[in-house]
Design a protein around this nucleic acid. Structure first.
Length: 655
RNA sequence: GCCCACAUAGCUCAGACGGUAGAGCACUCCCUUGGUAAGGGAGAGGUCACUGGUUCGAGUCCAGUUGUGGGCACCA
């Protein structure tokens, strides 16, 4: 008589053995119908699992996260079954549940076509209708290997062969289809339901290794209910509308062209945004005690050999040779240049920490398949800085960088920032003591600030541990932007020293840090975050002064020049068009403020201000309007009692 | 770099079966001076990504190249 303890604490007794579906049925009819699997103590099991001893049991339904994951995993299996039915010569490999859905990798001579995808999806629905029982079987490993080899499933056989000898493996059978799987699975294919959709076709390397052959991967999305599927597909459409490449064209911010693959042609409005970011960062950095410098874009091969870049990263570098037969490289990083500046002239311990900052444009020959709009380019500008300090100063400098970056992100409406801490990788240089010291300093700094962080073991740079700052945008996507790395290697390698209190030469520690990371990338992220509707302080065109009729022309020009003199980015629209037409056009251009002047405003020396996203307009005196706009043109943290950029981000998310 | 798809006017897209290009918006001109998301009319605009092939004839079929998109790998 096993005693079954349910999640609410109640205890029920059953005749042994009892199956999960029987427990569900005993609790309620509805639950029995919704049940997908059970959790026995802490392990997920099939609904049909027999329980003989006392246990804590929870019924997993499609409305829980665990249930949804099972559902997605089953969708992958149903897809594999459909593929095997339609294309028996195809080999199956692996098919896990992933965020929002699932995929399955197939091995096949001829690739799938988009038409195949439709056929597979249709067949999946049939399999769900057939409601085939999904049964678990336990086989000896060797028997399973042999079975799959005979079936011509060499990949499956390879996977099973990598399981330790002598162990049993579980297989799941549904209809004619049998697959190796740890499980658990739903009791039958009918439980999957129809809230799924095959989404894309892709290539993927076997075991994720580019040295291996490429398989055909089919992605799908699956949900508990049709309504959720619909919502998800709508979200995808929303995200598409925010695509910075699309908005970049619509708002005339930048373009790309074949003659400079992976490089941005910035148009006036895009460059204005870019410069706003630099202006802002420059001000914040100077305030934080950095010295802005500038170092050469092209430097001699010898320097890159000394720094180690030539050997380690040569294939990612743009190299050029001049008529005098000297070989140069376009800098892929700013650090060697910064060490050169530090090294120039004697530095004393009194000069430390010595912080050099540069809006340096770096050039990296990225693989063609990696390029993606502004988010991954071959030539980009970093808000790069290097802090030369003593080991004892690492903690304090780290705290300052964290404070600065969080404060800066807040100005852009990014409140939700995840910090990741990565420590020593296998492939590294430097002694364990030094690693110990720098890891402790970094980790200690985050902890002393009371910040939560995620631990990424072994993901540090080869020269030192690092912190990454990941921000979450208005529609919940994560972007890794800022980074802070401790480097106990390059300064020595490039001969940087300072004179210590003891009068002897010492090698400083170097901290690498970038807050926006790539300015190009950050600009792209901002465009998507704000859906193109940039807050006034960042908007390339802040105010458009329009006229109702040409009687207002002179006054409109005066208003614009007054605003321009006050530092606002403003233009006039005196065209012979109706105000409706002008409002529509400038609203589509996402200009934050449209100022209209007609005879009434000319008379009263007022302006009618219409704000983007609002319906009506407010008529205010010219001076008052200018003062308010000028205040809003400052970064949020520089305003008097301002709630911040979040409201703006949320507003644009809603619009 | 690898797999698949795609490439037609500034933009968004039509162009069964091969018979030498079309719409809307934008642009130019004319009429309209209109109070908050498209007033009307006319006009101009394309070596159909590039190279080669098949064909009497190619935007359309085939091959290659370049680029773009989605993934994979990469991201110092």
């Amino acid at each position: 008589m096993p005693q079954i303890t349910l999640p609410d604490g109640s205890v029920r007794e059953f005749d042994a053995p009892v199956r999960g579906d029987e427990i569900a049925a005993a609790i309620g009819k509805r639950l029995a119908k919704d049940a997908l699997a059970i959790r026995v103590d802490d392990d997920l099991r099939d609904l049909g699992t027999e329980i003989t001893d006392d246990a804590r049991v929870a019924i997993i339904t499609r409305d829980s996260n665990e249930g949804l994951e099972l559902l997605r995993h089953d969708a992958a299996h149903v897809m594999a079954e459909a593929v095997k039915e339609l294309y028996p010569e195809t080999q199956v490999t692996i098919g896990p549940a992933i965020e929002n859905g699932f995929y399955y990798d197939f091995a096949r001579e001829t690739p799938f076509t988009p038409e195949d995808l439709e056929a597979i999806e249709a067949r999946m629905h049939e399999i769900v209708e057939r409601d085939e029982a999904i049964a678990r079987e336990v086989w000896a490993r060797d028997r399973a290997v042999e079975f799959f080899r005979e079936q011509g499933e060499v990949y499956k056989a390879e996977i099973i062969a990598s399981i330790p000898e002598g162990e049993d493996v579980s297989l799941y059978r549904q209809g004619e289809f049998i697959d190796l799987c740890r499980g658990p699975h739903l009791p039958s294919t009918g439980r999957l339901g129809h809230a799924f959709r095959l989404t894309k076709l892709a290539g993927a390397y076997w075991r994720g290794d580019s040295a291996n052959e490429m398989l055909q991967r089919i992605y799908g999305t699956a949900w508990a209910h049709e309504k959720q599927l619909k919502t998800y597909l709508q979200q995808l459409e929303e995200a598409e509308k925010r695509d910075h490449r699309k908005l970049g064209r619509q708002l005339d911010l930048f373009h790309f062209a074949d003659e400079a693959v992976g490089s941005v042609f910035w148009h006036p409005r895009g460059w204005s945004l870019f410069q706003s970011l630099i202006d802002y960062m420059r001000e914040r950095q100077i305030e934080a005690g950095y010295h802005e410098i500038n170092t050469p874009d092209v430097m001699d091969r010898g320097l890159w050999e000394q720094s180690g870049h030539w050997q380690s990263y040569g294939e990612h570098m743009f190299v050029t040779e001049t008529a005098d037969e000297r070989v140069w490289a376009l800098k892929p990083m700013n650090c060697p240049g910064h060490v050169a500046v530090f090294r120039h002239g004697l530095k004393s311990y009194r000069d430390l920490p010595y912080r050099t900052a540069e809006f340096g444009k770096v050039h990296r020959y990225e693989p063609s398949g990696a390029l993606h709009g502004l988010l991954r380019v071959r030539h980009f500008t970093q808000d790069d800085a290097h802090i030369f300090c003593t080991e004892d100063q690492i903690t304090e400098e780290t705290i300052d960088v964290c404070r600065l970056v969080l404060s800066i992100y807040r100005d852009f409406g990014f409140e939700d920032v995840v910090i990741k801490f990565a420590d020593r990788p296998d492939n590294r240089i430097g002694s364990d003591e030094i690693w110990e010291k720098s890891e402790n300093a970094l980790r200690g700094a985050i902890e002393s600030m009371g910040l939560e962080y995620k631990y990424n073991p072994g993901e540090g740079a080869f020269y030192g541990p690092k912190i990454e700052f990941v921000l979450r945008d208005a529609i919940g996507r994560d972007w890794q932007c800022g980074t802070l790395q401790v480097d106990l290697n390059l300064p020595a390698r490039l001969g940087a020293t300072y004179i210590g209190e003891d009068g002897a030469k010492h090698v400083p520690v170097m901290l690498h840090r970038a807050l926006f990371g790539s300015l190009e990338r950050f600009t792209g992220i901002l465009i998507e975050h704000y859906a193109g509707a940039l807050p006034l302080w960042l908007a390339p065109m802040q105010v458009m002064v329009t006229t109702i009729t040409s009687d207002g022309d002179d006054y409109a020009l005066e208003v614009a020049s007054r605003m321009r003199a006050a530092g606002l980015r403003v233009d006039t629209d005196l065209r012979n068009e109706k105000i409706n037409y002008k409002v529509r056009e400038h609203s589509l251009q996402k200009i934050p403020a449209i100022v209209a002047v007609g005879n009434r405003e000319v008379e009263a020396r007022t302006v009618a201000v219409r704000r983007l996203g609002e319906k009506g307009q407010r008529v205010v005196g010219l001076d008052e309007a200018i003062a308010a706009l000028v205040e809003e043109a400052r970064p949020p943290s520089r305003r008097e009692g301002e709630a911040g950029a979040n409201a703006a981000a949320r507003k644009s998310a809603a619009g």
